[in-house]
């Protein structure tokens, strides 16, 4: 349980460890992209953590990084192909960032720091915690950016629901800067500060 929760809050990959930032800021313009990216990362993270943990005795120490990279790249390609086949709209809006999951530091970092030293079960739990922590972080950023920057919340279309919630007032006159790159960096900075504040408040309570 501890392994799972630490990824969500205390070691949140985005706000605390500041890992995997490139995709975070680039795809967080729409909530639906954040969900898709999060799902992709969780899949790759679980897959690579399992494989690395299983193969930890087979992979020679000297070349462990290339071996991990091959494993991660395979899972990324699988996600990429599956997304193109089954979720084309998502695949086209994530663009090169699906392939860039391969250089997402979180995945190599967890393989190196956790999965190579622990058993399969713990590795899965670790991957889930970190992956969900990443997704939640991404969701928060994208929610702020999309609501302020476009005045919409884009989810999956289902039945009569077109998938886009328009926020009255903001939709007609959004603060467009939040959709653009400066907005992403600003939102990230202030959310990180907010996270710092929350963490320190928590710590004070514990003492």
């Amino acid at each position: 349980m501890f392994n799972f929760l630490k990824g969500l809050f205390k070691e949140n990959p985005i706000f605390v460890l500041a890992l995997g930032l490139c995709p975070t800021l680039a795809v967080s313009t729409q909530v639906v992209n954040a969900i898709g990216m999060g799902a992709g990362v969780i899949f790759v993270l679980i897959g690579s953590n399992i494989m690395v943990s299983l193969l930890k005795n087979f992979i020679p120490d000297e070349v462990h990084i290339p071996a991990y990279i091959v494993i991660i790249a395979s899972f990324v390609t699988i996600v990429d192909l599956l997304m193109q086949a089954f979720l084309p709209a998502l695949s086209s809006s994530l663009g090169v960032f699906v392939k860039l999951i391969v250089v997402n530091c979180i995945i190599l970092g967890r393989a190196e720091a956790f999965a190579s030293k622990n058993n399969v079960k713990d590795s899965i739990v670790d991957a889930l915690g970190m992956g969900i922590g990443f997704t939640v972080g991404l969701l928060i950023i994208s929610l702020v950016r999309e609501v302020l920057g476009a005045g919409t919340i884009t989810l999956f279309p289902m039945g009569d629901f077109s998938g886009v919630i328009k926020i009255p007032g903001l939709y007609d006159a959004p603060a467009r800067i939040f959709s653009l790159s400066p907005g992403a960096l600003l939102v990230m900075g202030f959310l990180m500060a907010g996270f710092n504040w929350l963490l320190s408040k928590n710590k004070n309570k514990e003492n």
Partner: peptide, 27 residues
């Protein structure tokens, strides 16, 4: 070392090949 790394690469390529065969016509 080389042998083990080659095996990993070969298995990875094989799996990707299979996934590609399945998904390519769908795409």
């Amino acid at each position: 070392m080389t042998f083990r790394l080659t095996i990993i690469c070969a298995v990875a390529a094989l799996i990707l090949g299979i996934v590609n065969i399945v998904t390519e016509p769908l795409i």
